[in-house]
Design a binder for these strands. Structure first.
Lengths: 342, 342
DNA sequence: TGGAATTAAGTAAGCGTATACACTAAGTCA
DNA sequence: TGACTTAGTGTATACGCTTACTTAATTCCA
């Protein structure tokens, strides 16, 4: 059917192995032969069969991506496309392709990963999230399969290459920023508590609150899904309190969009009645009205570095694991203001 | 190293071929044997090696995605994640994985596709765009490689399964809508003229303009890149005219975001000074201020149907090609208003 | 009861590539 | 000149799986 290494060998009048060596650019082949073989390859339009190569080679030139939930849900958050942009940039530089398996339930996703790994469909995996006691991560560790994590692993962080922001510090500084604006009732709108990023940011928030001698109130802390709907739910809860917060630290821009729309419906003005500070600085966060004050966590770089680290793992497995911290930066826009004394 | 079909065969005391048949659920194997083999597989934690299977099988259970530009750029437009959501939904249902190769230049992307195809890394391809005289599409046709297209192929549309909106009609109706609001100077902000979608919508626009007996002016037609920056450029050009348009038909929401921000900078009010109607109804188009009046083209469904069509192509290659038209719907929000007589 | 028909499982030949090992021819050196 | 490198190729096997072909065992019917 398609042209194989043997066809090339026949045409160039050499052995198949020689052709294989030319492909691998083996120095033991003379320039003359190389030229001859290359001509034959061009003439026949030869392209190596990746499956055969992978089989013989035990390498696939592909890296797998694992998302926290079904791609279906994940892609609703611009975080993921942006991470993938970063990943694909370096993947492309090194001629790796990206491979995604999807699933609806946790079990399905897990099975997908097992198939990727055992089926040798990829050389390594980038986990696009970090969760408390994650089965997939445990599995990859057991299997000693190369992987890197975006976010901080809950356990064994030292032995796993991971790329993260200093989320604790970021949340602390941002809370301090809100405090400096005069806010004393600051709500925290978090995502899923299983995600390490939620925990880190919550701890940073707590630290700042306590440092400032403010009361740390459980009712100011809400956890919802990482979607617009999550933000909407959260606001409803918080505004139902006797003393609703005057500022919100929201863990994700998309949630903030939800928060914003609900506040708008309720006739609560941002930032006059309530300030909003969120994380991620997604591409579209400047578009909302008012535009979001948000912490730029450099999503692109998170992806880029994660893939880079993974390729290093794959290429030299002895290399020890490392932690890369990507800096963050507050982007001030229109959703935060000073408290006006009444 | 990892457990193979032979290990399972040995443990279950059958021949490797029998194990293979159990995996394929071949009816010629007795239930008793199947049970025995499955036990052995579970016990050993066996998972088939996909590369070996693909090699023997000539099938990969993966579908390739081709984007119009580098993933880097494409992912800046929420259109693509959303299409991929649709694709991944059905891909997952049928246990296919997604495969993406990326490249910066047109040549690199082309090479990536050739490697996908010749290297037998995927069973079929979904083209996420349709362009005039596209090398990749020609190549896939020559190779008789299964593929489907999102958008209308420029040539041979009858012989290629494709999923599209009726962009001509959509643009015509939308232009008529603007005309019905009293607008007589309507600008058209298009994307790359090589994209068939741009052409179709432009033609629909022209049709409506001419039907209404309005002058069709070239200077009202601008083409820029499918990004925010593109929208920004476009506005600058259009507002520099002696008689700037009172309404704009913008081909893409992200461009509209750019249009909006520039108009805002220039102190032009939307919709009071200028109306804006755009396409795609991306998830975040309700967030801008004012929120975008936009045509919902059902991006998710475009992806879903494209992948579905592809899987049909793969599974029965004789099946004839088809055209699926996904309906559109105007979502009225805040960027269009009637012309106020002065 | 013998042989055809049917069912169940095994044998072995690929799929296309990589690579350890073997081999040849030419060059090196004492 | 003969033993010894060394550069350049070829041979043969392995990678893990599928499948056409065969064989063995069982059933069925005249």
């Amino acid at each position: 059917m398609s042209v194989t290494i043997k066809d090339v060998a026949k045409l160039a009048d050499v052995a198949p192995s020689t052709v294989s060596r030319v492909i691998a650019n083996n120095p033991r082949i003379s320039e003359k032969t190389k030229r001859k073989v290359k001509e034959a390859m061009d003439y026949l339009g030869y392209h190596p069969n990746f499956n055969a190569r992978s089989l013989a080679n035990r390498s696939t030139q592909a890296i797998g991506l694992v998302m926290p939930s079904s791609a279906d849900k994940a892609f609703q958050n611009p975080f993921f496309p942006e991470v993938i942009r970063g990943i694909s940039t370096i993947a492309h530089e090194q001629e790796y392709a990206l491979y995604m398996s999807t699933g609806n339930t946790e079990d399905e996703i897990f099975e997908g990963v097992v198939r990727m790994v055992q089926g040798r469909r990829v050389d390594g995996i980038v986990m696009l999230y970090s969760r408390v006691d994650d089965r997939i991560m445990c599995y990859l560790q057991e299997q000693k399969f190369p992987f890197t994590v975006i976010g901080k692993p809950f356990k064994n962080a030292e032995s796993i290459t991971h790329i993260d922001n200093d989320n604790f510090k970021a949340a602390q500084e941002m809370t301090e920023y809100l405090i400096s604006l005069g806010h004393e009732r600051i709500g925290f709108v978090g995502g899923n508590l299983n995600l390490v990023v939620t925990i880190d940011r919550l701890l940073g928030y707590e630290k700042a609150i306590r440092n400032a001698g403010l009361p740390y109130k459980d009712e100011y802390i809400v956890h919802e899904e990482f979607l617009k709907e999550g933000g909407q739910e959260a606001v409803k809860e918080l505004l139902a309190l006797k003393e609703p917060p005057s500022a919100l630290l929201v863990i994700d821009d998309v949630m903030s969009f939800g928060v914003l729309s609900t506040l708008n419906e309720l006739g609560v003005s941002v930032p006059d009645d309530i300030s909003l500070l969120s994380f991620n600085n997604v591409m579209l966060s400047e578009l909302s009205s008012p535009s979001l004050t948000s912490v730029d966590i450099n999503i692109f770089k998170l992806g880029y570095e994660a893939a880079k680290g993974l390729l290093e793992c794959i290429q030299c497995p002895e290399k020890e694991s490392k932690r890369v911290v990507v800096p963050f930066q507050l982007i001030e826009r229109q959703t935060c203001s000073k408290v006006i004394e009444k």
